[in-house]
Design a protein around this nucleic acid. Structure first.
Length: 375
DNA sequence: GTTTCCCGCCAGGTC
DNA sequence: GACCTGGCGGGAAAC
């Protein structure tokens, strides 16, 4: 017998309710069931029985949780519970993995000349970055198409691109590399919905709408710790908006227009692109109550040392402080002149961000070189 | 009409 | 060969 009863659809008892069956609700129930100190081992059959679902569904949840380290496979049919504490480290590893891959891909080596400064955002850079992205997705074997890997790549898109809003079709395009294959696109989007529902149930992303296109999009919230009652702490906007989704419910077809709820997150606009004020920034919008934060401070993904893909707000501040506004402005105009204009939003956002990261990095290196020459 | 995503088939992998 | 794992896409609920 299932250990958890339905939520939203209780009033419509005895009728089939799709929401009760959603992966997000299942994930919430799964986490409630196993997020305990004395849990060491998770049997898939046991989980399926206790949650009242088919084993097949447990695989989906477990694979996604495994990709961010919450559970780890022990043996056939057996997983070990690692807990939420490992999430920040797992996210950091994903970020680092992206950075290493990108560095190793020789992208910068082949296209950037420190002395002569080949044009930022050149077609070379565009092609190399495209290679990297398609490399994420072009492998055809089973492992490469796994839900776990797709989950990690989806997270990387958020962590490493600096893009705040990602639509699932643009994510699918970026991860698939070939948007002309409509069947593959549809399949990829279905899986991304699965992943998004699980992450939504953990409050790691939220469903909203892209401010410009108004298309349904997801916004990265990051991991904000688990308060005492076992539920991720809500943002201040969530606290003030009781209609918003809570842990244990899902975001299925959540529409701000219909619900008259708009994200209260601040924006930093730069031309056509918008970036978060940084997800890890400790502002009133994105942080938990201090008491809650302190309890989980050790698990928070704070204090990142941003690499070449640091959010714009970080890189720009650094450059401005070090070199003054003028040089930065020059780089921006150069980058704008040369940046590739993609129809695909995710790719466009990524490449624009690469250019800005490169601008920041080059400026820093040039300054160091100048300092060395002086000394 | 579009978006969302449950459901279960079935093929590949493991024991 | 039996069972486990999980990719995949049909098709229906939700909007």
């Amino acid at each position: 017998m299932p250990v958890f009863s339905s939520g939203d659809c209780e009033s419509r008892q005895a009728l089939y309710c799709r929401k009760d069956k959603s992966l997000g609700v299942l994930c919430s129930n799964f986490l409630r069931l196993y997020n305990k100190d004395d849990i060491e081992s998770i049997g898939l059959d046991d989980a399926a029985t206790r949650l009242g679902v088919e084993r097949r569904r447990i695989y989906d949840v477990v694979n996604i949780l495994e990709s961010i380290g919450v559970v780890a496979r022990k043996a056939k049919n057996q997983y070990s519970w690692k807990g939420f504490a490992v999430i920040p480290q797992a996210l950091e590893e994903l970020r680092e993995g992206f950075r290493e891959n990108f560095t190793m891909s020789s992208c910068f080596n082949s296209t950037m000349d420190l002395g002569g400064c080949k044009s930022v955002g050149s077609s070379d850079l565009k092609l190399e970055a495209q290679d990297f992205l398609s490399g994420l997705a072009k492998n055809d074997n089973r492992r490469e198409k796994s839900l776990a890997l797709l989950t990690q790549n989806f997270v990387k898109l958020f962590l490493c691109s600096g893009v705040e809003y990602i639509t699932l079709d643009s994510a699918a395009t970026a991860l698939l590399g070939d948007h002309s294959n409509s069947t593959a696109m549809r399949t990829k989007i279905r899986r991304l919905y699965d992943i998004a529902n699980v992450f939504s149930s953990m409050n790691m992303i939220e469903k909203t709408h892209h401010p410009e296109t108004r298309k349904p999009a997801f916004r990265w919230l990051g991991w904000r710790g688990i308060p005492v009652n076992g539920f991720p702490c809500p943002t201040s906007s969530e606290k003030s908006e009781s209609r918003k989704r809570m842990f244990g419910t899902e975001l299925t077809n959540h529409d701000p227009k219909r619900n008259k709820v708009e994200s209260s997150i601040s924006w930093m606009s730069n031309g056509s692109l918008k970036y978060p004020l940084t997800v890890k920034q400790e502002d009133s919008e994105n942080s938990c109550d201090r008491s809650e934060v302190e309890q989980f401070m050790n698990h928070e993904a704070r204090g990142y040392v941003f690499g070449p893909f640091a959010p714009e707000s970080v890189t720009q501040q650094t450059v401005l402080a070090q070199n003054g506004a003028r040089q930065n402005q020059d780089w921006e105009s150069l980058a704008f002149t040369h940046h590739p204009h993609y129809h695909n939003q995710a790719l466009r956002d990524l490449f624009v961000h690469y250019m800005e990261a490169w601008t920041s990095w080059y400026t820093e290196v040039a300054e160091n070189k100048q300092a060395q020459e002086v000394s």
